[in-house]
Design a protein around this nucleic acid. Structure first.
Lengths: 226, 226
DNA sequence: CCTGTTGTTTGAGACGGCGCAAACAGCCTG
DNA sequence: CAGGCTGTTTGCGCCGTCTCAAACAACAGG
């Protein structure tokens, strides 16, 4: 099961065993913190099951959701960036299961299994890229487009097909969506209501179902200028 | 001279020689592109002298300035993130001198000089962190605060002391500042005029001098809520 | 020195999204 | 099943910022 993850492709069985033998597996109940922003980074993680919210807190006490981590992804990899503290908090959005390795083992692990290092760095590269994309979006797009983009991304990364459409398969509030896109829950609520009117989505308490991804895409890509 | 850079601290002389022997040095005149967004990544760079603008172009043709690179910093390190193309363009803001290494040499270089790898990954980690900070700022701050922050950062990273204050030591337009902060040149111009009124800055064509960094800091940190 | 180009300033008006407020709805607990 | 809690919806008014427009200033090149 674990061997199927992209991180581990091309690894020999003995390498995999080596990694797993040194990993600790743990369960994290919904809404618990796996680690805290600015806390001492002493381990890195691989999410086996569930969904995790990566949250940054501003000095003023406002929250910003940097990203969601889905099953199969690494997180808390501060050690690979030469950091000694975590730059954000990780909160279980649902009950989660994750492997973790102590940071002291990092040199040994990567020396023995170079794929771990390269996979980790590729992940970091992707995240940097994604984050830069987000900056570009926040610089150039209207709130409506940003929310549409965020929803489409959630659908793609954590969508579960249902009778009426594709549902985000973890509980997510309007407030959460607002914190992902840099707006207020009021505006998100209004947008979702308008979209529901048009038959693009269906809402519910801590729930969003996208019924017409293509229609949403049109909104997301909509250019106002030129 | 080169040996003093943070990237090279703790390297033995022979390691440094090994790196330099494989590097190519080149001059890039003002306003020329060192590499282009989405172009094939075939080398990575170390800026020896000058200032470089890292620019992303949106599908709609709008520009966003991701960051400035200053002397002593690595750039174009796509290879370390497992990328085959550059995610942005690099434009010389002034006449520049940079070392470059072909990407094919990366495995050999890092194998022989592990400090190069760890330094590069630390750089990437810092950039990820900075970029996330930018997202948080764009989510939570007003334009005025963002511009103030951007200016303070420029002063810190590329400030040159003059009689009247600290000047950004490369030509920078209102448009550039707008593209750094996700606003328009008009708004930037209005802000700078207002600040000049208050004696915080002095402007000029492609020029900004900060005369009262502390005053600017107050604006940057100004909380509207609570 | 004149002229075109590039960068800057400033005004007027419009509007998107926010703050505030209030009512409502689904869920958990006792 | 009553009550509190948490999440959602919606209206209204305002403010910050953008858009559009025009004039101005600095510099470069012929």
């Amino acid at each position: 099961m674990i061997a199927g993850l992209p991180l581990f492709t091309g690894m020999r069985n003995e390498e995999l065993d080596f990694l797993l033998a040194r990993a600790r597996s743990a369960r994290y109940p919904k809404d618990t913190a796996i680690f805290d922003q600015d806390g001492k980074a002493d381990a890195f993680f691989l999410l086996l099951d569930g969904h995790i919210r990566v949250v940054r807190l501003t000095p003023e006490g406002e929250q910003v959701i940097a990203r969601y981590i889905n099953a199969g992804e690494l997180f808390g990899i501060a050690v690979a960036m030469g950091r000694t503290t975590y730059p954000a908090s990780a909160i279980a959005a649902v009950d989660c299961v994750a492997l973790s390795w102590p940071n002291e083992a990092w040199p040994e692990l990567t020396a023995r299994v170079p794929q771990l290092a390269s996979g980790t760095y590729r992940t970091i590269g992707q995240r940097l890229q994604e984050t830069q994309d987000k900056v570009v979006q926040m610089s150039t797009e209207q709130v409506e487009q940003r929310v549409a983009h965020a929803l489409l991304r959630l659908v793609q990364q954590a969508g579960r097909k249902t009778g009426e459409g594709i549902e985000i398969d973890f509980p997510i509030t309007r407030q959460d969506i607002a914190e992902m896109t840099g707006t207020t829950l009021h505006t998100v609520s209004r947008l979702l209501s308008a979209w529901e009117e048009k038959g693009l989505v269906r809402g519910g308490r801590q729930k969003v179902i996208v019924t017409d991804p293509h229609g949403l895409m049109l909104i997301a890509e909509h250019r106002r200028k030129r």
